[in-house]
Simulated scan of single mutants.
Amino acid sequence: MTTTRPAGPAAGPREVVGAGEAACHHGEILQGVFLDERRRPCHALVTLPMHGPGAHAAFLRRSDDGPDAVTVTPPGRAKARAAALLAVRACAAHRGVEPCGGELRLSGDLPVGLGMGSSTSDVIATVRAVADSYRLRLAPQTIARLAVRAEGACDPLMLGPGPLLFAQRQGRVLEALGTALPPALVVGCTLGGGAPVDTLSLSARTDDDREPARYERLRRMLRTAVADADPALLGRVSTASARLGQRVLHHPEFETLTAIADRTGATGVQIAHSGNVAGLLFDPRAPGLHRRVRHCLRALDGDGMTPTVNFSTGTNSGTTTGATPPDRRGDHRPHHRPGPHLPERGPLPWTSTSPRPSADRT
Rank of each mutant, 00 (worst) to 15 (best):
P99E: 10
A139Q: 15
L244H: 14
V293C: 06
N276V: 04
R345F: 12
R236M: 14
M158L: 04
L48H: 02
R247W: 13
M1Q: 10
I271T: 06
E21G: 11
V186G: 01
T324I: 11
A7D: 13
G318M: 08
L45F: 02
D68F: 09
F311S: 03
G194Y: 14
F254A: 04
V277S: 00
I29T: 07
A129F: 03
A261Y: 09
S203W: 05
S107Y: 05
G188K: 01
L104W: 10
G304I: 12
A272N: 09
T267M: 00
T3Y: 11
G322P: 04
Q141G: 13
V187T: 09
R14N: 14
P287M: 02
P75T: 13
A23D: 09
E21W: 12
R81V: 02
A278K: 05
G162F: 08
L174S: 13
P326C: 05
C42Q: 15
Q170Y: 05
R169K: 14
A147P: 08
I143F: 04
R40A: 13
P49N: 09
E211F: 06
R40M: 12
L218A: 01
R223Q: 15
R137K: 12
T308Q: 13
A139T: 07
A147K: 00
L244N: 00
E21Y: 07
A299K: 00
V72Y: 10
L200I: 02
A11D: 13
A278Y: 00
D109K: 06
P182G: 13
A7M: 10
D360M: 08
D301M: 01
A11K: 03
R333G: 00
R356S: 01
F166C: 14
E37D: 14
P183Q: 07
A242F: 06
R294W: 04
A184K: 04
G76S: 06
T47Q: 12
D327G: 00
A278T: 02
T142F: 09
A195G: 10
C24P: 02
P349H: 00
F311N: 03
S119A: 14
C42L: 11
P41Q: 06
D301P: 10
A323E: 01
M116F: 02
R243N: 06
R329H: 03
V130Y: 05
A93L: 08
L164E: 12
P13F: 07
V130D: 11
R328T: 03
A69S: 14
G302P: 08
P231N: 11
P75G: 13
A78K: 11
E28G: 02
G66Y: 05
P156G: 12
